[in-house]
Design a protein around this nucleic acid. Structure first.
Lengths: 250, 250
DNA sequence: CGAACACTTGACAGCCCTCAACGTGAGTGG
DNA sequence: CCACTCACGTTGAGGGCTGTCAAGTGTTCG
């Protein structure tokens, strides 16, 4: 199944969580929603703005490059990969997006998505019509500020891997950052599963897939971690963090 | 002179341009200002928000990493370099900012600037208090949309040089992009002066300074351009554009 | 069971970084 | 006016990291 499922006519709108209090507590907007600055009326406004869509399955496109831009979306469950394909057919992975993170922000400048987004496993999304959200942001300062923050954060994040780091540094930074993001969402920071292929990691880190394999194997041999297929256990977190430090600017 | 000049107490506020109609026509906010969506009252609100500060001279800091974030600024004249310095003392150039472009956007997520900004030549700025601007953006949809666009655009721009391009491709992309930005501001796209040192270009493109020298010399020998110190004349724009195409995604 | 795909492993080459030395131009002070 | 200094830029030699090519292994899925 490779057709885009993001257009509104294909949306499966779920009725309700059945639990108002736990409304997207892991979501990137929760900070805005739950801050004292947003009253109940505004929260309801945002609530009715949301469409819960999915599930998407591994390989499903959330949106494609060139699709008209209408909405941003927060990941509720699963992993989304965003990427572009150059004229030679090479894939450039822009990022992997975990639950609570927002996709589509880089489309705001322009009228169409500048990249593709596919599900890597089973994905559930919260879809926000951007025009409606922008109007609401004008009335709710907390929401506007949160949108500004999310956008600004992505600028810094995009610049992280732009440096001329070694393959070891890039790999360590990827693992540590991935582990931290999982930890923030309640998953184990020590032991986790990579939801993406080696090739995806390579295209994200700007390395050859063979280099990703070799670095992981060497990290394993050196006792930094234990890797079996897509299962990873970080054994020497300090050493990995030290390797990643310059990339993560610490 | 290396002390920061951005803090408000050091600001030299110029009285007025003396020409309301030409109020920052090259500025990044002009699209918001001049669009039909913004009425005269809103335009005046934005106008009184602005402080014209400067001049800064080559080497002056506009702000330093860690300074409290209070304002963004649009370049009126000159060139500003933004950069970070890692713990080993290596400088990483984030960007060069020409008249009409905005600096400080990546500071919105956080309470302090995440990078340094220095003037490369004589620089004049328009300073916008960000808290005040955010309030105004809540009342003026056109301004909010413009801020969203500027932020979103920077996300894409930061990702441009993140690819694993060759030194030739990076250099060509830098020259073509620089030429285009100059052209948009009324300068010659064919013949211009590089306002930054070779080392700055190298730290921006993630190359060694020696590589920058060598590539420029070879481009000169091959007839793609003519370079004399910091003066550049693009001779074969098509060839350079072709080289830069994958980097600029064309 | 077979095919497609993901991943691994090895050999080799090339690009670019590092190190070093030299050239050049602007500013300074005599 | 000239010598000096210093930063910037250029040029050359050598080596290391990582990409490319190739072949092989293992796994999943039809």
């Amino acid at each position: 199944m490779n057709r885009p499922l993001f257009p509104k006519q294909d949306v499966l709108t779920l009725s309700d969580d059945g639990d108002e209090l736990r409304f997207c507590t892991t979501c990137a907007f929760s900070q805005a929603c739950l801050s004292e600055g947003m009253n109940k009326a505004a929260l309801m406004d945002l609530h009715v703005l949301v469409e819960h869509i999915g599930p998407f399955h591994a390989g499903d496109y959330v949106f494609r490059e060139g699709d008209p831009f209408e909405a941003i979306a927060a990941v509720r469950a699963g992993t989304v990969k965003t990427f572009v394909v150059d004229r030679d057919g090479n894939e450039h992975v822009l990022g992997f997006h975990l639950p609570g993170e927002v996709i589509g922000l880089n489309a705001i400048d322009g009228d169409s998505y500048p990249c593709n987004a596919v599900a890597l496993d089973t994905v559930m999304l919260c879809r926000f019509s951007f025009p409606k959200m922008a109007v609401l942001a004008g009335r709710v300062p907390g929401l506007q500020a949160q949108l500004f923050r999310l956008l600004s954060r992505d600028i810094g994040r995009a610049a992280l891997l732009a440096g001329d780091w070694s393959a070891d540094q890039r790999m360590a930074a990827f693992l540590i950052a991935f582990s931290r993001r999982l930890s923030e969402r309640g998953f184990s920071p020590r032991r986790f599963q990579l939801t993406m292929a080696r090739t995806d990691i390579a295209n994200y880190l700007r390395l050859a897939p063979e280099t990703v394999s070799r670095v992981l194997r060497r990290f394993d041999e050196e006792g930094l971690l234990r890797v079996d297929r897509r299962d990873v256990e970080l054994l020497d977190r300090d050493a990995l963090t030290a390797l990643a430090a310059p990339v993560l600017r610490e």
